[in-house]
Design a protein around this nucleic acid. Structure first.
Lengths: 230, 230
DNA sequence: GTCATTCATTGATAAATATCAATACTTATT
DNA sequence: AATAAGTATTGATATTTATCAATGAATGAC
C-alpha cells in the first residue's frame, strides 16, 4: 500500500454521484481532505470491526465487500466498483466498520475523512438527501439478496451471480471471473464443490461455457430464467 | 380500519427519537399532517409494491414487516414495535414500498406524509442526520440477519428468534408468542414442521417450555449458546 | 353449539446440500 | 526445474432440511 496525493475531485470522471450536489467550495474541502492509496489483489482496504474514520471510494479496480461470520465463514455482500461510496453502516452508529473490503485486482482508492462527510451532511441538505438515497438503495439491494439467498436454490443463486458479473461488473457476455470457486460460494452461499458442480451442469446444458476462470454466457435468456425460477 | 385524528406529537410518549430534533414549529407541522388509523390482527398496513406516500409509526400494538418472494413465500424481516419509523427504503428511490407490514395485534398507527418528512430532511440537518442513523441501524440489523440466516443451522436460528422475543419484544422470559409456527418459519427461514420439531427438541433439552403459543425460557444461558454456536 | 377452517403435530420419505478424501492442475517461490 | 501452496475437480457419503400425508386441536363464523 503506497500513499500519494494526486488528481482532483473537481473533474474526477468516477466521482460519487452525490458529490455533484456540492458547491465549489465544498468539493474543494473534500479534495483537500482526501488521501489516495493503492492496493494489490488480496490486500485488505477495510477491516471489519476496526475503527471507522473514513469513507472509501475506488478510482480504479475492483474489490469485494464481505462480512466475516463466526468460524471464518465469510459472506460476500457485493462486488465494489468505482463511483460507489463505501462506508459501513456502523460508521453512523458505533464508529466501527461493519464489514471488510479486500482488493480483487490492483486498486486505486481515495479515503475521505468521515468528519468531512458528516460536516457536509449538516451543511448541505441536498447532499444529506443524496446520502439517504444511497443508503436506501443499498438497503433495497440487501432485501433482494436476503430473498434470493433464502428462497432460491443453488442453481438460481449461481445464475444470479453470473448475471451480476455479466450485467453490472463487466457489461459483456464473456469474462474472466475474478472470484475463486470458494469466493463464488461465499457470494451465493454454497460450498465450493457445489459451485463447481453447478457450473458444470450449466455448461452441459449449453447455457454457459465454463473453463476455469473463463466464463462465457451462451444463452442469457435461459440463464435469466434459471435465476428467476430459483 | 377507522380514521380519526387524536392526541398530539408534542407530548407523545412513543414518538420517534428523531422527532426530538425538531423545533416546535416543525413538530407542529408533523402533527398537522398526521392521520391516525387502527387495524385488527391480520390487516395489512402497508402493501409491498404499492405507491409509497407515507411514513408509518405504531402508537400501540405489534406488526410484522415482511417481503413477499415469488410463489407466496414470505420472509419476515422484523417485528415492528411502537417508536420505530416504518418507511420502506424504496420510498427514497422509486416511490414504492419495498415490503409489506401486517398487524399482529390490534394496532394504532400514525401515517405521516412523506412530503413532510422530505421537507424536514431538507430544512433540518439534525433531522436528516437522524434519518441517516436510522437507516444505518436498519442496515446493520439486515447484515446480522443475513449472516444468521446463511451461516447458522435451524436450532441456532430458532434460538435467536426466541431471544428476540424475550429480549426485545416482550422483555420477559415467558410470553405468548404472537406468531404461528408458519410465521416463525418465515422469520427463521425454515418449514413450519421443522419449527415444531426444534421447539420440541429445545423443550426436551429443558432449555424452554413450549406449549402451543405459550413459551417459557428456562435456561437462557444455554439458549444463548445454542443461538451463537449455530 | 355445529361446521368449517386454520393451526399444530407426527412419522415417513425425498430432496438439497455439505463434507470428506483423493487427485489433478496452477501459480508462485526458491 | 523442483517444490510448495493454493485452487479446481470428481466421486462417495453423510447431514440437513423440506415435503407429503395423516390426524388431532383450536378457533372463528354462523
Amino acid at each position: 500500500m503506497s500513499d500519494r496525493l494526486a488528481h482532483s475531485c473537481e473533474n474526477c470522471p468516477v466521482a460519487w454521484e452525490n458529490f455533484k450536489n456540492l458547491s465549489d467550495i465544498e468539493i474543494k474541502l473534500v479534495n483537500e481532505n482526501r488521501y489516495e492509496a493503492s492496493f494489490r489483489p488480496g490486500e485488505i482496504l477495510i477491516k471489519q470491526g476496526s475503527p471507522a474514520a473514513s469513507a472509501l471510494f475506488l478510482s480504479s479496480g475492483m474489490a469485494k465487500a464481505y462480512v466475516e461470520g463466526p468460524d471464518r465463514n465469510n459472506n460476500i455482500l457485493d462486488i465494489v466498483l468505482p463511483s460507489s461510496l463505501i462506508i459501513g453502516p456502523g460508521v453512523h452508529i458505533d464508529d466501527r466498520y461493519a464489514f471488510s473490503v479486500a482488493a480483487l485486482t490492483n486498486v486505486q482508492t481515495c479515503f475521505i475523512s468521515f468528519k468531512i462527510i458528516n460536516q457536509l451532511i449538516r451543511e448541505n441538505p441536498e447532499f444529506a438527501s443524496g446520502m439517504i438515497k444511497d443508503l436506501s438503495m443499498k438497503s433495497l439491494i440487501a432485501h433482494k439478496k436476503l430473498v434470493s439467498l433464502t428462497q432460491k436454490k443453488m442453481a438460481g443463486r449461481l445464475a444470479e451471480a453470473l448475471l451480476l458479473f455479466s450485467d453490472e461488473v463487466f457489461k459483456r457476455d464473456n469474462f474472466d471471473i475474478i472470484l475463486t470457486r470458494q469466493e463464488l460460494g461465499e457470494l451465493t452461499n454454497m460450498a465450493k464443490e457445489s459451485v463447481v458442480r453447478i457450473l458444470k451442469e450449466l455448461d452441459s446444458l449449453g447455457v454457459i461455457k465454463s473453463d476455469c476462470s473463463k466464463i462465457q454466457i451462451l444463452d442469457k435468456t435461459r440463464l435469466r430464467m434459471i435465476s428467476e425460477k430459483g
